[in-house]
Design a protein around this nucleic acid. Structure first.
Lengths: 173, 173
DNA sequence: TATGTTTTTGAAAATGAATTTCATTTTCCT
DNA sequence: AGGAAAATGAAATTCATTTTCAAAAACATA
């Protein structure tokens, strides 16, 4: 009774809600162009990653994948995420917990992060004024900026209402 | 012929340009208050740290200290820096290279950093507009902000003139 | 389709900064 | 001086990340 589902599982699982098919084509093209090889593992990992919204560690993605009984090594997940980052499909980010997370590189290119110190939720935001101000400041110091990192740590409204007297682990200053 | 210099070396080395004496008094008071003990090592490490301007890793401070033939263990330097951070004399910071650095907590309290990807120079800056904008943004998302991190990575004017075609290691996005 | 070359895989080992352990030493209160 | 409590420091541990290397897979070419 699972036949019909299985029949298409390798080529398409349901509608392509995330535009994954196109991305995978682009990835394949990228690999060929650079003389890298297309493998089953890379396909599985890339698919799983591209389905993911938000920020995920190599470990988390690895667990997600192996849960579905794929026997793919952690190293390969790790390396594939690096590859995705180098090929422009993913961005590496390190927040205050010092874990490396990957997020998809989307159209929403320049954004920053709000991080809840209680539940760990990561909210993205974009603010043009902030961008401009950053550039202006860098300029004042004779800096040519190529990247920036801007994170706001605090407590989201949900966590504050759950737990009014927050005294969680501070992070920075 | 070095007698005169040596005579005062433990109590005061030259004028107290950095206000170190006062800070050390405050530290001593802090220790006593909390039931911690004043030790030769803590004195040496605190002095060395308080003399330091800018941002220093535990390793760097350890090397600086042992250079002067003090035999103080790395662990003690590490722990003392943690202690200084907890007692409000130092602030811990982690930049893109993932090393923990310590800087003195000065009057210039809320500041952010410009980091040169070539020479590694760290420049501090302060900008009220930026602060306010950050708060406003956090507020929009119902966040109660307790800390923030804002770093601009790029190339300082010096490095750009030394090496016009920079293609150094990128860091983030 | 077979062959050969190159790349990939993944288990295991290495790395490296941060942190902890624990026996010994030091501080400091009485 | 004596004794309880804390500090020291060398070594060990932790833990995420990265590398190694032998075996397996991919793929260009014949």
């Amino acid at each position: 009774m699972l036949k019909q589902k299985a029949k298409f599982s390798l080529k398409m699982s349901g509608r392509d809600y995330h535009g994954i098919a196109k991305k995978k084509e682009r990835l394949k093209a990228f690999l060929k162009e650079r003389g890298f090889k297309s493998t089953r593992q890379r396909d599985v990992i890339a698919t799983a990653f591209l389905k993911t919204e938000g920020h995920i560690t190599a470990e988390e993605l690895y667990r997600k994948i192996t849960r579905r009984h794929e026997h793919i090594g952690f190293t390969t997940v790790y390396r594939t995420l690096k590859l995705l980052a180098k090929s422009g499909f993913a961005v590496e980010r390190v927040f205050a917990d010092n874990l490396t997370r990957y997020e998809q590189l989307s159209a929403k290119d320049h954004h920053d992060h709000l991080i809840c110190l209680d539940c760990g939720a990561i909210t993205e935001f974009e603010n043009t004024k902030l961008e401009n101000l950053q550039k202006r400041i860098a300029h004042e110091f004779g800096f040519d900026t190529v990247a920036h990192k801007m994170e706001l740590y605090g407590y989201c409204s949900k966590c504050r209402s759950d737990n009014p007297d927050v005294s969680g682990p501070l992070v920075d200053k």
